[in-house]
Simulated assay, not measured.
Amino acid sequence: MAVNKVIYGGNTLVDLTGNTVTAADLADGVKATGADGNPVVGLMQKVTIDAELSTTSTNPVQNKVVTEAIANMGGGGSGKYLPLTGGTVTGGITATNFQTGTATANYFQCRKFRGEGDANSYYHAIDFGYSGHDSVDFYEYDPNWNFYKCLTGTKSGAVLIGNINGNGWNGGARLTGAPTAPTAAVGTNTTQIATTAFVQAAIPTNVSSFTNDAGYIKTVNNTKPDSNGNVTIAIGGGNPSDSGVSLSAQNTWTAQQTFEVALLELEKYTTAYDSGTSITLTKSTARYIATGNFTLDLTTISYLISNGQSQIITVYIQSSADYSLTIKGAGTLKYIGAASDLAITSAGLLLNILMMSDGSNGITSIVQASKLS
């Protein structure tokens, strides 16, 4: 039976009843006596206390080692740690990611940015190639900023694709939108870019100002174009060669011409040709094939004569059967013969019409109809 308390002569010599020791509190193998007087054998494994920091040890570390490490992070102590306020790195730094911040004012700045090769050969150099490329893709040296494209895994395969110097970009350029450029002086004849302002100033206001005039008309009968490019042709007197119109070449008139006296050796007319049952005449001569009762509309051609003018119209109408003929837009109709003569037969019909305008814009048309045999 275990004894946990001893009293002698009224005095307590030993009292273990207040002990709280347990086997878990003692190191493995260490013995003590419990509150009940029975022996207690320790179960706690022995622990090793490390004297320095380690990346692999699971042992506790002395608090003085931790204290020293924290102090060194501020730049004190052994100097093995870079202080947060600055410092000098004597060894290499490897990082999977590096950034200076996310705000617009944050950026990375350095005096020399070294790629592959010796960065001391250039003021600034960047290599965007992969490992093994001994070339610099971009570098600035003196006044030049050079850009290279590496085509192989060696420096000899780098091709200069352009550079920026005091004269601007040298190399192929791709411009979109509405790029601008300085406008060269008038008369400049170089390989520089010509702006729209330069081209506008270089174009003469009239063709007579062209210095390289091959293929351009500079004069008409020795008359130069005016500032608007127009040529004024003077109408001559007794000498036809003074009229400004060539007598030996074809002249095409697009507006009405007035001739006081005309001597013609040969006349030709553009003749309309069509078929149907209703035709609006626009020319002085025409040939039509009637396919039914026929209407000849002279309204349009009657508008071409003014007061005191007249015109002669000749129309040949063919048909394979007999049809009636109606003439409209000719003003007051008068006939040579009878109105019943205006009949289309299978033999054909020839119409001659004299259309005249009197002083009050009235139109009178005299019709001569001839049945063909």
Rank of each mutant, 00 (worst) to 15 (best):
287 R>E: 06
255 A>T: 11
35 A>K: 11
13 L>F: 13
224 K>N: 04
200 Q>R: 06
370 S>R: 11
21 V>I: 15
238 G>H: 04
296 L>P: 00
2 A>N: 07
30 V>S: 00
184 A>R: 01
22 T>N: 00
358 D>M: 14
290 A>F: 01
241 S>N: 11
213 D>I: 06
134 D>Q: 14
289 I>E: 03
211 T>E: 08
158 A>F: 02
65 V>P: 00
33 T>D: 02
64 K>G: 05
297 D>K: 04
211 T>Y: 08
58 T>G: 00
139 Y>H: 08
169 W>S: 12
253 W>K: 04
212 N>Q: 08
121 S>K: 15
361 N>C: 07
78 S>D: 11
15 D>I: 03
80 K>I: 03
274 D>K: 08
356 M>P: 05
150 C>E: 10
336 I>H: 12
112 K>L: 01
351 L>V: 05
249 A>I: 12
168 G>D: 13
8 Y>C: 06
176 T>L: 12
307 N>P: 06
101 G>A: 06
106 N>E: 10
3 V>L: 09
16 L>D: 02
366 I>E: 11
83 P>N: 03
289 I>V: 12
357 S>Y: 07
366 I>A: 09
66 V>G: 04
225 P>A: 10
366 I>T: 15
121 S>F: 02
298 L>S: 00
333 L>W: 15
206 N>I: 06
202 A>Y: 05
65 V>D: 01
57 S>A: 08
299 T>G: 05
296 L>G: 00
124 H>D: 12
116 E>W: 14
74 G>F: 04
196 T>F: 14
291 T>K: 06
220 V>L: 10
224 K>D: 03
73 M>D: 02
338 A>E: 13
71 A>G: 07
44 M>N: 09
189 N>F: 14
235 I>H: 06
130 Y>E: 14
99 Q>T: 11
334 K>I: 15
367 V>T: 03
330 A>C: 10
233 I>P: 01
120 N>I: 09
159 V>S: 07
178 A>P: 05
181 A>N: 12
197 A>G: 02
6 V>M: 11
165 N>G: 15
83 P>W: 00
174 R>E: 15
36 D>H: 12
265 E>I: 11
206 N>D: 12
234 A>K: 04
340 S>I: 05
88 T>F: 03
136 V>M: 15
84 L>W: 03
309 Q>S: 09
297 D>H: 09
134 D>T: 15
76 G>V: 01
85 T>C: 03
38 N>T: 14
304 L>H: 03
367 V>Y: 02
360 S>Y: 09
203 I>K: 09
335 Y>T: 15
188 T>Q: 09
371 K>C: 05
314 T>F: 04
131 S>K: 03
118 D>Q: 13
14 V>R: 08
204 P>R: 07
128 F>D: 15
128 F>G: 14
